[in-house]
Design a binder for these strands. Structure first.
Length: 469
DNA sequence: GCATGATCATGC
DNA sequence: GCATGATCATGC
């Protein structure tokens, strides 16, 4: 392949490469293959074959960007089809392996991640199980330059990861530590652990990646644009923190600072100050108040903001009674029986994504027992520790086995009293409502729950941390 | 008084 | 009408 002099695009110009990429959309590589081409196998081979067959380039192993003269990286990434025939993101976008010993000496500007991913040509293809790479269909082409604002957040994420390695805690890294850039698990369970520079403990292999939630919002913007090939995508969701604030402070600090002036204030007084009408005593009044403070806009839901969505970050309120107990357990999404039946890998499951994501907990604490005089007491970011994720995997297996056996009924689930940190309970507007199952019959709607004792454990651990400071 | 089944409230 | 966050309300 020495055809580079006559390439049908300008290899130094990202726009030209992007324009040329449109010719692959709606097609498969089979239309471009030539006699004698040896198809590549294994993961990552799709990208190589696109380079060879469509862009007429030889595969390089150079650590810089694929289109180095254009400063642009080619990324082929799979979509899957959802129940309603919509496209869904299948995987996080993995960039490069983290070499714990080297990476502590690289600042962000010189990192492989930054050099490769600041400007990317994303080619989305439809994943098909057991399908020859030549027959994969390409769906969308996106020229994605990480916006300044996202880069500010990603740079902070990078520092969080590096600092954890510098503290000798590479083995404790978690995707939930960060917002957009995650240190995701890579490789199989039995793989050898890697060396880390500041601890003798081995750490699982991890890679820098853009998280599922981040990729999902890119796809959302593409879909909203109504076009199959897009660049400079417009973000339409609520913006919580403007870029100029992020130049000075981390996203989390901005959030915490917004709550600072209100700490210690009772919820009724807060509602009055924030001009929120709680005369009808709505069930979610604490969430309404927290949203108003966090967004600085009365009725906005911060969980739907661009930053929270891209980060897979969720704000939740917790009420602590005067005696320290937590009255209510914490609910999550309804169980998608089709998803859990079809997904046999814990790390790729929806539950793993929910439980390993990052949370912003807003704590309201009762002052006098039984009086319901809750004050805004504390706000903090939290991620489930690795040790609890092991319990969560058992929980997932328990649910999955029951779903596969058709045991979708109260008597089969873990209960709160089982003291296993998590349980399963109904959640629906009406108890008769059904949710789809693989056998087509449908089943009662249940959802994932944290036990109230587990929520208490989270709050207590936070208190211990504060006391140690 | 607690655990669990059930439903509310909101926003899109 | 539904997903999601949150809390109610009943029976033991």
């Amino acid at each position: 392949m020495t055809m580079q002099a006559n390439l049908p695009y300008n290899i130094k110009n990202p726009k030209s490469i992007f324009e040329y990429s449109k010719g692959l959309i709606g097609k498969t590589l089979r239309e471009f293959v030539w006699d004698g081409y040896e198809p590549k196998k294994g993961k990552g081979s799709v990208g190589q074959m696109v380079e060879n067959l469509y862009f007429l380039l030889e595969t390089n192993n150079y650590a810089g960007a694929d289109f180095s003269e254009a400063g642009m990286e080619l990324k082929c990434t799979p979509l899957k089809e959802g129940k309603k025939e919509q496209y869904l993101i299948k995987e996080r976008l993995v960039c490069n392996m983290i070499n714990y010993c080297d990476v502590v000496n690289e600042d962000f500007e010189h990192s492989h991640f930054y050099l490769k991913c600041q400007l990317m040509l994303l080619l989305f293809y439809l994943h098909q199980a057991n399908c020859n790479n030549l027959d994969l269909k390409f769906i969308y082409s996106v020229l994605w330059q990480l916006p300044e604002k996202d880069l500010l957040i990603i740079r902070h994420d990078y520092d969080v990861i590096i600092n954890k390695i510098k503290q000798g805690k590479a083995h404790e890294l978690s995707e939930g530590d960060t917002m957009y850039l995650g240190a995701c698990r890579k490789g199989q369970k039995g793989d050898n652990l890697m060396k880390q520079p500041f601890s003798s403990e081995g750490a699982p292999r991890r890679a820098f990646s853009l998280k599922m939630a981040y990729m999902r919002t890119i796809l959302e913007y593409v879909l909203a644009s109504g076009s199959k090939a897009v660049t400079n995508i417009k973000e339409t969701d609520l913006e919580v923190v403007p870029v100029k604030e992020l130049r000075e402070h981390s996203f989390e600090d901005v959030m915490l600072n917004r709550f600072q002036p209100y700490l210690g204030e009772g919820f009724k007084s807060l509602a009055a100050d924030l001009e929120i009408d709680i005369s009808k005593n709505p069930k979610n009044k604490f969430a309404i108040i927290a949203n108003a403070i966090a967004t600085m806009k009365g009725s906005s839901n911060i969980n739907l903001s661009q930053e929270f969505k891209k980060a897979g970050l969720t704000m939740k309120t917790i009420r602590v009674q005067a005696d320290g107990k937590i009255k209510e357990a914490m609910s999550f999404e309804n169980i998608d029986y089709v998803e859990i039946a079809e997904c046999d890998n814990w790390f790729e499951s929806r539950l793993y994504e929910i439980f390993s994501s990052r949370f912003m907990f807003v704590i309201f604490k009762e002052q006098n027992k039984g009086e319901g005089d809750f004050i805004l007491d504390d706000v903090f970011f939290w991620t489930m520790p690795q040790s609890d994720l092991i319990f969560a995997e058992n929980y997932w297996n328990h649910i999955r086995q029951n779903v596969l056996n058709g045991h979708i009924h109260e008597e089969y689930w873990w209960k709160g009293r089982d003291k296993k940190k998590f349980h399963v309970r109904p959640k629906a507007q009406k108890a008769e409502e059904l949710s789809p199952t693989i056998d087509g019959k449908g089943a009662k709607k249940f959802c994932y729950w944290f036990n109230n004792d587990y929520v208490r454990e989270i709050v207590n651990n936070r208190q211990l941390e504060l006391n140690n400071e």
